[in-house]
Design a protein around this nucleic acid. Structure first.
Length: 295
DNA sequence: TACCAGGTCTGAC
DNA sequence: GTCAGACATGGT
């Protein structure tokens, strides 16, 4: 399915592995809105991305018929899982098209290279608290500021980055520190949630799924239904979760002819219509809708 | 300059 | 249970 190589750049070896790009596009997967810790960089082959997660980093490049992933050799299995590379996405795209819904059909075809990342749970939870009532460029820069202030500087090849702070560091800083980073009213949400994580509240969600998982996640301070759905989908592998934000609400009205305005009801409409793969479809449509609006 | 952003909490009814 | 209003701040 993929090949593993080691190349030599200067004196340092830089490990990488290649993956088929039939159902994996680094650009679409990274920019579709599921993830915030990345930047555009020049890779050995051309323009690509530096993606950071926990205390690790990797570099991605979209080739003509492959995606190249540079990482520490010891992290290969980690990124294999992070990018969800063992899942068959052809059947997911097929199932999306099987509903006969034109907007979903187009979105799935355009976004078939999107893979849903398996994010670290506490990092995902905290980052999506930052995301509320916020725009993506600012979410990215705020999270980067958090890492620069509370994380550690690290080097990967010729790239420098900051690790995500440990949950202990997060929980032990004060509200003012977080406000200074531009978090505004979300500062107490983050602080209390970090403290709850330390007390083992996130571990209690282990093994939960669907309604029960969502209910458990909304117990964290600052986490409502939308953020809970994001965390369920992006870090618990619950593909039935369907986050409804301002974009999905707009899409529901404009492209599905929906009349509800209550987001819980909009969520119910989509989850009941699309079932176990609703989360993948949500991401295809979210990305396509936003791209279209940009033009 | 206004409006808006991958919403949530709180208190009133 | 439902709903309006408040909440910070920078991108566009």
């Amino acid at each position: 399915m993929y090949n593993v190589f080691i190349i030599l750049t200067k004196e340092k070896s830089m490990f990488y592995f290649d993956v088929s790009n039939e159902y994996f596009c680094a650009k679409d997967s990274i920019e579709c809105g599921q993830y915030f810790r990345y930047e555009n960089v020049l890779t050995p082959l051309g323009d690509g991305f530096l993606l950071k997660t926990e205390d690790k980093a990797c570099v991605l490049y979209d080739g003509n018929d492959f995606v190249r992933i540079y990482c520490e050799e010891n992290d290969k299995d980690y990124f294999q899982r992070f990018f969800d590379l063992d899942r068959d996405y052809s059947s997911i795209v097929e199932s999306a098209c099987s509903f006969g819904v034109e907007f979903l059909d187009i979105s799935a075809r355009m976004g078939k290279g999107i893979r849903i990342f398996n994010q670290n749970r506490s990092e995902c939870l905290l980052n999506f608290i930052v995301s509320q009532q916020n725009n993506i460029p600012r979410i990215k820069s705020t999270i980067e500021k958090i890492c620069q202030k509370l994380g550690n500087k690290k080097v990967f090849g010729e790239y420098t980055y900051y690790t995500y702070p440990t949950i202990e560091t997060f929980a032990s800083c004060n509200e003012d520190t977080l406000r200074e980073l531009g978090l505004g009213y979300r500062a107490p949400y983050l602080l209390k949630t970090a403290q709850s994580i330390i007390l083992g509240e996130l571990d209690k969600c282990d093994g939960l799924f669907g309604v029960e998982l969502k209910k458990a996640l909304t117990k964290f301070y600052g986490v409502g239904n939308k953020v809970a759905d994001c965390v369920a989908l992006f870090s618990f592998g619950d593909a039935s979760a369907f986050p409804v934000d301002t974009w999905m609400e707009k899409l529901y009205h404009e492209n599905f002819g929906g009349t509800e305005t209550n987001r819980d009801k909009i969520n119910a409409y989509f989850t009941e219509t699309f079932g176990k793969n609703a989360g993948y479809f949500q991401q295809y449509m979210f990305y396509y809708k936003r791209q279209k609006e940009k033009k």
